[in-house]
């Protein structure tokens, strides 16, 4: 994974829970441009542990002077966002991967409808800039509980295409209204809580939308869970995976060579063959098909966990 050591040049609270970070090249070099919806993986040396979390880029895709991300503090998470909120200050240097896009705009679309819930607004911030620049028709619907929690309001341009739906102001998002009456050839993109993605899929199905016109951002942070052990077939070693650690992180800590890219169960790079499994793999990825998941012969170590007697993987 190609990465760059970048300097933090800004860390600003947008809301009580969301902070914006800006990274620039330490010698002022231009960073590679990207497409709206792309993410980077930030490396966080947290004690004796190296965490890597993926964050959507929120800066202008055509602006190579820096990369910006918005991080929501997840107190129940594995610790990456707490590290960013607590420990990272301007002047610090962090290793950041080059951008990768698993949630790109379909540029064939006659119109783009973007639907965001909460922190799910982040990939759309760069997409809105791209759409404005390319002068493509779009509308953005952004649902948040309250104005104080709506970090995206600080980051979005003041244009009529942007609609905020603030529930405690009695202005809840009406998916049926958004999805009905859109012109043929419209593509819909949803990012936010699982419930929102499901609701859009259901509304879309009811209104006769083709599935291929409904996109959602599928990668996610690895969920914490119970600790478990995994045996490595190639070396015969057994490694322990902590409650707040992913299997991928445990493999890296054990210096097992493994390819990765999105670290969110979407890109397929870290797919690993299961040699034997006595128990249940908790598949959290969006990569393996349902059949592949239920066969328990493959696992995505970046997000998936295990519960049971013993798991041996081909690493």
């Amino acid at each position: 994974m190609t990465s760059l050591m970048l300097r933090v040049t800004a860390a600003e609270s947008l809301t009580p829970l969301v902070k914006r970070f800006r990274f620039e090249h330490p010698r002022g070099a231009t960073l590679p441009l990207f497409s709206g919806g792309a993410h980077v993986v930030v490396e966080m040396p947290d004690g004796d542990m190296l965490r890597r979390n993926a964050y959507s880029l929120i800066s202008d895709p055509q602006d190579g002077s820096g990369y910006e991300i918005a991080v929501r503090r997840e107190d129940g998470g594995r610790g990456g966002s707490r590290f960013m909120h607590g420990g990272v200050r301007p002047g610090d240097q962090l290793r950041v991967s080059l951008p990768l896009n698993l949630f790109a705009l379909d540029l064939r679309a006659r119109k783009h409808v973007l639907i965001a819930g909460g922190i799910g607004i982040t990939p759309f911030i760069a997409q809105v800039r791209q759409l404005l620049r390319m002068q493509l028709p779009f509308e953005l619907h952004y649902a948040a509980r309250s104005r104080t929690e709506a970090a995206g309001l600080h980051l979005l341009p003041d244009v009529p295409h942007v609609h905020a739906h603030i529930s405690d102001e009695g202005n809840r998002m009406d998916l049926g209204a958004i999805l009905s009456g859109q012109p043929l050839g419209t593509q819909v993109y949803t990012c936010g809580p699982e419930g929102l993605i499901t609701a859009v899929a259901q509304s879309g199905a009811r209104l006769g939308w083709p599935k291929s016109a409904l996109h959602s951002e599928v990668f996610q942070a690895p969920p914490p869970g119970r600790p478990f052990e995994v045996m490595l077939a190639r070396s015969g070693r057994t490694i322990a995976v902590g409650a707040h650690q992913s299997l991928l992180e445990a493999l890296e800590a054990a210096e097992v060579e493994i390819d990765w890219s999105c670290r969110g169960g979407a890109c397929g790079r870290c797919e690993t063959r299961v040699v034997s499994c006595h128990g249940r793999i908790e598949h959290h990825d969006h990569w393996l098909s349902e059949d592949e998941q239920s066969a328990q012969t493959r696992i995505m170590p970046c997000v998936s966990r295990f519960r049971g007697e013993s798991l041996i993987i081909d690493r």
Binding site: M1, T2, P32, F34, S97, L98, P99, L100, S261, C262, C267, G268, R269, E271
Partner: peptide, 11 residues
């Protein structure tokens, strides 16, 4: 295809 879909920039 899996490999190609995940080809990152710069690599």
């Amino acid at each position: 295809l899996k490999f190609l879909l995940a080809i990152p920039q710069g690599s």
